[in-house]
Write a protein that binds this DNA or RNA. Structure first.
Lengths: 159, 159
DNA sequence: CACAATTAAGTTGCGCACAACCCAATGACG
DNA sequence: CGTCATTGGGTTGTGCGCAACTTAATTGTG
C-alpha cells in the first residue's frame, strides 16, 4: 500500500492566504455537492416517505435479505447510535421487522415486511432520476468516484 | 448558459441494476469523503473548541469584518435556522458579539470579540494540515473543485 | 396615510451523525 | 468453573441541516 508517498507537489511553497482559500473550498464544495444531492434525493424519495439514509438502509435489505444490524452498519458506515433510531422509525413505518437472533441473543436481525419489500418497486426509478440530475456521463461519475475514494482513503489515514 | 446540453452520453442504455449501484456510490462516496473531512477537521479544531461549521463562520468574520447574519448565511449557504443557534453558541463561548443594527432594526451584526479575533492565530496552521491530509496536489484539488461545482450546479437545477 | 407584501432573525420540530456511556450475552483464559 | 474482556445493541446528549412558522421592521403601493 501507500504507493509513492506523493506529498502534494509544490505545496510547501504556497502562502497561507492562498491555502486558506483553497482548503476552505475543498471541503466546502464537497459539502455543497452533498447537500445538493440531499435536495434531489429528498424530492425523489418524498412520496416513498423515506429519507436518504433510510433509503440506503432499505437498499441494503432489498439487495441482500434479512441482515443483522451490525452488517447494515458496516455497509453504510453507520454506528448503532445512528442506526438504532433509524431502524426503529422504519419499523414504526411498517417497512421492517426486528427479531432477536435465537442463536446469539445479542444480535438483532432486520427483516423486510411485505410493505417494505413492496416499496422496492416504487423505488426503482429513483436511481435513474438521480443520475440524470447529475448531468454527468457514466465515465465522469466513475472518475469522480475514484478521486473521492482516494481522497477518503488519505483523510482516513490522517485521522 | 447551459452550454451544450450533454444529457449524459450512453445513459439510457444501461440496465437498472447497473444504475442502482452507480448512483448509490456517487452520493455515497461523496458523503464518505465529507465524513472523512469531518474527522480530520474535528481533530484539527479540537483544541480551538470549534466545530467545522463554527470554524467556517469564524473564517468569514476573520476575512471580512463584522457582518450581518444574512451575509454570513449567504457565504456559507446556511439559513437562519442553522445559523442562529450556531452564533448563539459562539457568543456564549465569548468569541462573538451580536448587535442590532441601528439603521435597520431587523438586521443583527455579528462582531468578533478580542478572544474571537485572537483565535485566528491559533487557527492559521489548520488549512495546511488539512490540505496535507488530503494527499492531493493543488492541481488535483482545483480539478476536483471544478467537477464538484459543475455537479452541484446540475443538481441545483434539477431540484 | 393606511395597508399589504417583503425581509431579517429567531424558534420549533424532526432526522442524522458522532461521542460517550450502559447493559446483556458471549467467549477466552487461568 | 469463574472471572474478565469483548461484542452487539441501545440510550443520551450535542450539534448540524432543513422545513415550517412566528415576530418585528421595512418597503411598496393604492
Amino acid at each position: 500500500m501507500t504507493p509513492p508517498p506523493t506529498p502534494a507537489p509544490g505545496l510547501a511553497g504556497l502562502p497561507d492566504t492562498e491555502l486558506l482559500k483553497l482548503d476552505h473550498q475543498v471541503c466546502f464544495s464537497l459539502q455543497a455537492a452533498s447537500r445538493a444531492f440531499g435536495g434531489v434525493y429528498r424530492e425523489a424519495l418524498k412520496d416513498l416517505g423515506l429519507t436518504y439514509p433510510q433509503y440506503l438502509a432499505m437498499m441494503v435489505l432489498w439487495e441482500h435479505g434479512p441482515l443483522p444490524v451490525k452488517t447494515i452498519g458496516e455497509r453504510l458506515h453507520l454506528d448503532s447510535g445512528t442506526l438504532s433510531p433509524l431502524l426503529k422509525r422504519l419499523e414504526t413505518a411498517g417497512l421492517v421487522r426486528r427479531e432477536r437472533s435465537p442463536e446469539d441473543e445479542r444480535s438483532v436481525t432486520v427483516h423486510l415486511t411485505d410493505a417494505g419489500a413492496g416499496l422496492r418497486e416504487r423505488a426503482l426509478p429513483v436511481p435513474r432520476a438521480i443520475l440524470e440530475a447529475t448531468g454527468m456521463s457514466v465515465e465522469e461519475v466513475l472518475d469522480l468516484q475514484r478521486t473521492l475514494a482516494r481522497l477518503t482513503e488519505s483523510l482516513g489515514r490522517a485521522a
